[in-house]
Amino acid sequence: MRWLQDPILDVQHLTMRFGGLVAVNDLSFQAGRGDITALIGPNGAGKTTVFNCITGFYKPSEGMVALRKPDGSHLLLERLPGYDINWKGKVARTFQNIRLFSGMTVLENLLVAQHNPLMIASGFTFLGILGIGGYRKAEKEAIEKAKYWLEKARLMHRADDPAGDLPYGDQRRLEIARAMCTDPLLLCLDEPAAGLNPRESLELNELLLSIRKDNGTSILLIEHDMSVVMQISDHVVVLDYGTKISDGAPVEVRNDPKVIAAYLGVADEEVEKVEAEIGA
């Protein structure tokens, strides 16, 4: 129960309504610092909506999303303007459908993610043009960092190609590399293994584990691929129809009858039995 003692992300009573539809209903959960936390659930359970609330795409109707910094201070993400969630909150995310800047090169995609430090170093470009300040040094460091992540995502040989020309699996890894270039404390991945073949999926697992180990970044991920979830996550939160139905270590969750019922459904004659089991 490490996530309760030292959570990096503390979601309390999160509710998101679209008109009359309640997509997320009074959801509370914690993601532990240094953990890989998986958010799973059947289609339409509200997982991506939770992500959108955390990363500022939506303003939650109710509730609180607190990010706890290593120094103990915390930041209420739902009150920050969109760009500050990444810059001040240090939360980065990727999308279910890849959203790279496809017209820019792979390297440029990684440099865009380091825009803020570069802007400061170049005095909002004006000093940079005049050659004042440490712009060149900052640019060099930014390229070094981009190279580090290119190496890690094994995309070095494609650095100068337009991002849109990369094969699907490479684009997935590039999106993760780009998110990591913003130095996040929490990395939110929306179905990173979607559409990957088993080998690519395995490589992805290795990349995620090494991100946690080498960079100390906590990861929150939405995933349908149960092999990924069970292999790499420390903590699983299960959603169904916008409410939390289970929360715990992967093994506990896997054997939770509520989860099995939500995923597989139950036959008519067994409804009463299962309901008795899950205490509904």
Partner: peptide
């Protein structure tokens, strides 16, 4: 150029 292509994604990378 990033904002030209995808403004919301640019904001998620910390670009104002």
């Amino acid at each position: 150029r990033a904002c030209e292509q995808d403004r919301k994604m640019a904001a998620l990378l910390g670009i104002n």
